[in-house]
Design a protein around this nucleic acid. Structure first.
Lengths: 132, 132
DNA sequence: CGCCTTGTTCGAAGTTCGGTGAACAACGAA
DNA sequence: TTCGTTGTTCACCGAACTTCGAACAAGGCG
């Protein structure tokens, strides 16, 4: 969104770059990212393959917390982020994750659907006019 | 091993019972248990389907730490424990986990083999005479 | 009976995690 | 330029996790 925000204030990169390379993904990081019900709920919503706006997610936590969880998913390599204006869009990296860890996402999503994990995560419907 | 150890000193149960029922297993608990390289290494060793003695595991941590990690796996429902004398035997609950979360274990084990996750966990060969 | 082995539990220490509110940067619109 | 929106970062907190060494309980052995 604003590429030099961190450097402008802190003089250096403090966190890993977004959208890590596929071959950098670590199994335990992916599993850790999927070990939180809220994050599983987010992944289930993202499983439709569409791009979603941060504001679409209706979660029972503060926006800073949502930002944190989405960063965990992104750092683990599960999501792809794209900044556009003040908005930030997320999409599941299904093909990448499938290539790196075959069947993992399908298996976890099937289990999550079966048990309804993360069902407290919802979406606010988009306004057809503004796209929000 | 000694069933009333805790109660004899503390007057109550402090931790969940070992070997929880299959239907009690939670997806996020299983994934959390598998999000540690050492525990993944243990599960890979247990994937041979055999019963293993605690002492067989050659891990670069203190024995109390090993005990802790094995408890995490057991509490998550991934292992079955059996006490015999002073020894404690562990076995992977493959059928149970498969029934509850189809393909999950196979998928994670395949990914772990591919990346050689937890390869710092080994075994000390058994003495044919004593079984250790 | 002592002594060794085995694994658990405890307490302490340090780290990580999940969560919050406030401040902030960038963008867009008025 | 000013204001509102959007999402990030920060400082901070309490809870949970990881790890260790020491103490301990039970069983087996001499």
């Amino acid at each position: 969104m604003f590429a030099n925000y961190r450097t402008s204030r802190l003089g250096g990169v403090r966190h890993p770059e977004p959208n890590p390379d596929v071959d950098r993904l670590m199994l335990t990081d992916v599993l850790a990212a999927l070990s939180d019900p809220l994050r599983v709920g987010l992944v289930r919503l993202l499983a439709d393959g569409e791009e979603h706006n941060f504001g679409e997610f209706a979660v029972p936590v503060a926006k800073s917390t949502l930002s944190h969880h989405l960063k965990v998913l992104n750092t683990a390599g599960l999501t792809w982020r794209r900044d556009e204006g003040t908005r930030c869009y997320v999409r599941l990296r299904r093909a990448d994750v499938d290539a790196r860890f075959p069947n993992l996402l399908d298996t976890v999503l099937a289990a999550a659907d079966q048990d309804d994990v993360g069902s407290h995560v919802g979406t606010t419907p988009c306004d057809p006019g503004t796209g929000r």
